[in-house]
């Protein structure tokens, strides 16, 4: 499944430009140190964390996209760094549990 297809299927709102690519898996966590340890290239990351380090770690780990869950507001600082680092960020109205469940059902394991 691709990033764009996932966004369409889950009804996600893109808050940055979308760089479409194949998704290889997902990680749901709010600790950036956890993503540094376990995030792999091509993964989608679901989180309520909105510090600007989210964009930095998504870039260093070469994640396919970040989904900020629970309809949380995304700060200007995070958006600015995401645009600079070409990181794709979506916002999901659903919380992490619900969004993860639907993503799993779509075949992203």
């Amino acid at each position: 499944m691709t990033v764009a297809a996932m966004a369409e299927a889950l009804g996600l709102q893109a808050v940055t430009a979308v760089a479409d690519q194949e998704i290889v898996g997902a990680i749901a966590t709010d600790l950036i140190s956890d993503v540094l340890a376990h995030g792999e290239p091509g993964m989608v990351w679901l989180t309520i964390q909105t510090h600007r380090n989210v964009a930095a770690v998504a870039s260093t780990q070469e994640l396919a996209a970040v989904i900020v869950t629970g309809d949380r507001p995304v700060s200007r600082e995070l958006l600015a760094l995401a645009e600079q680092q070409a990181v794709t960020i979506f916002v999901s109205e659903d919380d992490t549990y619900g969004t993860s469940g639907r993503l799993y059902e779509l075949g992203v394991h």
Partner: peptide, 9 residues
């Protein structure tokens, strides 16, 4: 800071 944000901003 390190556990939540990975490194010192």
């Amino acid at each position: 800071i390190l556990s939540q944000l990975g490194w010192l901003p």
